Simulated scan of single mutants.
Amino acid sequence: MSEQEREPTARQEAAPLLPMPEDWSRALAVVAHPDDLEYGCSAAVAAWTDAGREVVYVLATRGEAGIDGLAPEVCGPLREREQRASAEAVGVRRVEFLDHRDGVVEYGVGLRRDIAAAVRRHRPELVLTLNHRDTWGGGPWNTPDHVAVGRAVLDAAADAGNRWIFPELAEQGLEPWDGVRWVAVAASPRPTHAVDARPGLERAVRSLLEHRTYIEALTDEDPEAYCRDFLAGGAGGAAARFGGVPAVTFELFPR
Rank of each mutant, 00 (worst) to 15 (best):
R112N: 01
L128N: 06
A116V: 03
G110K: 07
R120V: 03
R121N: 08
A152W: 00
W141V: 12
V147W: 08
R112G: 01
L126H: 07
H122T: 04
G138E: 03
V147T: 03
A117E: 15
D114E: 15
A118F: 11
T135F: 12
V119D: 04
P140F: 15
L154E: 13
G110V: 08
L126V: 14
R121H: 06
D114I: 09
R151T: 01
R120H: 06
R133E: 14
R133C: 02
L154K: 10
R120G: 10
L130G: 10
D134I: 07
D134L: 15
G139V: 09
H146A: 02
V147S: 12
H132I: 06
H132E: 12
T135Y: 04
T129N: 10
A157S: 02
P124Y: 15
V119G: 05
R133A: 03
I115F: 01
G137P: 04
N131H: 10
R123P: 10
T135I: 01
E125W: 03
A148P: 02
G110Q: 10
A148Y: 00
V119F: 13
R113I: 13
H122P: 00
H122W: 15
G137E: 03
W136N: 00
A117H: 13
V127C: 14
G110R: 14
E125C: 11
I115P: 04
D134E: 14
V153D: 04
W141A: 15
G137F: 02
L126T: 07
H146P: 00
R151S: 08
L126G: 10
A117M: 09
V149I: 05
A156Q: 13
R123L: 05
R133F: 13
R121T: 04
A116G: 08
G150D: 15
A117V: 05
R133S: 04
D114K: 05
L111P: 05
W136A: 09
P124R: 15
N131M: 09
W136E: 08
G139R: 09
A118W: 14
R112A: 00
G139F: 02
A152I: 02
R151C: 13
D114M: 03
R112M: 03
V149W: 01
L128C: 12
N131C: 15
P144E: 14
R113Q: 12
D145R: 05
G138N: 03
N131L: 12
R113H: 11
D155I: 00
T143S: 14
V127I: 12
L154Y: 05
